[in-house]
């Protein structure tokens, strides 16, 4: 490409680059502010207006939130639900997607319709709640996984991926006497690791971030995931009359700002740690998803 070196173009560049820099900063500074705030003392946060780098470093807030089990239990629950849920969802999704990817399967189109229609219409919150209740899932960890086990969108992406694998692979394996299960686990899945990684990350992030299913189906505060704990500590303690459910450990007084920030950091950190992997895969996944299902 010929480089454009007119004055107008240079001015354009300066303005464009500066604006983008500002946008990036505005997007990211809230995170820095919260991280910095979590590592300082309540006193410092009270006197200094803008904390991006603490002058007094302190682990006071973290010591406080880990002095009781509430946050730790929430973290453990979230880790368990994320790991178990991702495995479970990925297993069901990959199996169903592979079955539906085989063009010679009778009834493939009607089954696809059954899946796609759920993206357009749903029974809604209450009827779903009643089904979950009648299955005895209320107040069980499974309630955060089973009712949302398969995401129709992820299923379609996965099916499209399988469908685009060369058909000759399956045929030659069949001639060699492989069963459909053998083909799936020994040939198709090893070849599909990039897609499986992408969809697993989709599921993992969804499970880590989930809070509404916990609010819907879990009344037992001891089973709440970290996101619900975060909501209790930050959203509900700021003098808001939303929910009346209280938390024994923190009920005595409203938590300090630094404490709230520390809980935010704890709930955010795992995502920030896997983010470099996420970004690479997710951008691809987002584009995959835009291709007609």
């Amino acid at each position: 490409m010929v480089q454009d070196k007119t004055i107008g173009s240079r001015i354009f560049n300066v303005v464009n680059y500066s604006l983008l820099l500002v946008i990036a900063l505005v997007t990211f500074l809230p995170f820095i502010h919260v991280i910095a705030g979590s590592f300082t003392t309540a006193g410092e946060l009270a006197t200094k207006q803008l904390v991006l780098v603490p002058t007094t470093w302190s682990l006071e807030a973290y010591r406080y939130i880990f002095s009781t089990n509430t946050v730790l239990t929430g973290l453990a629950t979230s880790i368990g639900v994320t790991a178990g849920g991702t495995l479970f969802s990925m297993f069901l999704t990959a199996l169903m997607a592979y079955g539906l990817s085989r063009r010679d399967l009778t009834g493939r189109r009607p089954i696809m319709f059954v899946v796609v229609f759920t993206m357009l219409f749903s029974g809604g919150i209450i009827p779903t709640f009643l089904v979950v209740k009648s299955m005895g899932l209320i107040d069980s960890y499974a309630a955060m996984v089973v009712p949302t086990a398969i995401n129709a969108f992820n299923l379609i992406i996965m099916r499209n991926f399988f469908q685009n694998l060369p058909e000759g692979l399956e045929e030659s394996a069949k001639i060699d006497g492989a069963s459909d299960w053998g083909i799936l686990f020994r040939i198709v899945i090893p070849l599909s690791m990039p897609a499986i990684a992408t969809i697993s990350l989709f599921y993992a992030v969804t499970y880590w971030n989930t809070y509404i299913t916990a609010i819907l189906y879990l009344t037992d505060a001891g089973k709440w995931p970290i996101q619900v704990i975060l909501r209790q500590i930050v959203v509900l303690s700021s003098g808001l009359a939303g929910d009346t459910s209280s938390m024994d450990d923190f009920a005595s007084r409203p938590p300090e700002q630094t404490v709230k920030m520390a809980v935010i950091v704890v709930a955010t950190l795992p995502i920030l740690l896997v983010y470099p992997f996420l970004q690479k895969h997710f951008a691809k996944g987002a584009l995959l998803g835009s291709i007609k299902g």
């Binding site: 971030n209 959203v235 709230k260 809980v263 935010i264 709930a267």
Partner: peptide, 13 residues
């Protein structure tokens, strides 16, 4: 990639 709880919590703080 942040949950709505995190987005809203940061805003609230």
């Amino acid at each position: 990639f942040m949950s709505w709880v995190i987005i809203v919590s940061i805003s609230f703080v």
